[in-house]
Computed example of a mutant assay.
Amino acid sequence: MLFLFKHADVYSPESGGRCDLLVGGGKILRMEPDIRISRKYCDVIDARNLRAVPGFIDGHVHIMGGGGEGGFATRTPDLPLTDAIQGGVTTVVGCLGTDGYTRNMAGLLAKAKGLDEEGLSTFVYSGSYGLPLRTLMPSLEEDLLFIDKVIGAGEVALSDHRSSQPSFEAFAQVVAMARRGGMLSGKAGIVNVHLGDGPRGLDFLRRVLAETELSAHQMLPTHINRNPRLFEEGIAYAKGGGFVDFTTSTLASYLDDGEIPCAKALRRMLEAGVDPGQITFTSDGQGSLPDWDQNGRLQDISVGRVQSLYQAVRQAVQEEGVPFDTALRVITSNPARILKLKTKGRLAPGMDADIVLLDPSDLTVRTVMAKGRLLMKSGKLLAKGLFQ
């Protein structure tokens, strides 16, 4: 079916003015000020007084659930399709976390394929918190070469009591394997790095840059807004050319302990002179949000939400005064470029038809199209998971 979005205020993510978008075969076919085509050949969507933006990319989601830090009952549930739709998320990158045993790569890939069948675009990282990596094939390079959905490794945990406490050499070797596999497969080959509260912070990443020939573009450290010390490290790292990722899912106790809200973190990084193209937001959706005491004992546990991703972007615009097109980049064009998702993150002819319509009065999500299929229209869900 052909779809024609009429009179949209386009942000691709830069402002492009009033435009029509013709969609067919899962792609944006044309994007022009006034496209005329008979209504009997297409479904016309009136986008007058609405903003058309690229579908959101969430690059760090525990799509098959995570957690387990407090025992079997604390394993978090998998991602429901409707959570992504209502949050405007059309592309997700799945990962494993602390538990790479009862949750494994075969299950992660199966869940990714299931979400793909239900309407989303999906990719995965190979491995989990621990090193050596537990991959599907004998090596990370082979996962990158022969499994289409694998785009990198992770999330590898550093500076955290839950990590495998790898040596620097072991970590650098994973980055090197990701580099080789990425080159050979034409993929990002990036290592998603979980950073905890430990004092070592970004030390291993800085050492990779200082002691090897590897590039900062092979590593994406996440949870950079976790505490003020790590955040300040992140500013210096990003100004030196590294990527930094902020986590949008949070708890009141995290904020009380010094975590910097993503909206405020984005404003502060921009004020510090960080290139806005170096910054991404991810939700850590369906991952556990554990509350530890000073002795590392679990006091409580909650779950991250994919819908927090765009909520943080809205807050950056509405509460922190970040320009809309700048804030939009951290969940559209930036992750698409960093993760080498070449048909994602922008509105232009030839790109995937991942389109979100926003109400400009409050920036709420009204309509969601993914891969040319309408999943929500005017606030009404048109799709849901089979077992929802």
Rank of each mutant, 00 (worst) to 15 (best):
G198V: 07
L381P: 09
R314N: 09
T280E: 08
E259R: 14
A383S: 14
E14M: 08
F3Q: 11
V61W: 05
F5V: 10
Y41S: 13
L79R: 04
L289A: 08
L96G: 06
D160I: 01
L381I: 03
G234I: 01
T90V: 01
G321W: 06
F171L: 02
R373M: 07
S333I: 14
A216F: 05
R103N: 12
R30L: 14
D359N: 15
F123K: 10
G296K: 10
A106I: 12
Y310L: 03
F168W: 04
N104L: 04
K384T: 13
T102A: 13
E32G: 06
F3P: 00
L386D: 12
Q388L: 11
E141A: 13
Y11H: 14
D160L: 08
D99K: 07
S302I: 01
P77G: 13
L374A: 02
P261N: 08
F246M: 14
S128A: 15
N334F: 04
A383Y: 00
G201M: 08
L2Y: 15
F168D: 02
G88C: 02
G372Y: 03
Q294E: 12
T367F: 03
R207C: 01
D20P: 01
R268Q: 15
A263D: 15
D46I: 03
L195P: 05
G234P: 06
D20N: 03
G198F: 06
I37V: 15
T74R: 11
G68S: 12
F146V: 02
Y11F: 14
R267E: 13
E14R: 11
Y254T: 07
E155Q: 07
E211N: 07
K264Q: 15
D160F: 06
V61Y: 02
A157S: 11
R200V: 12
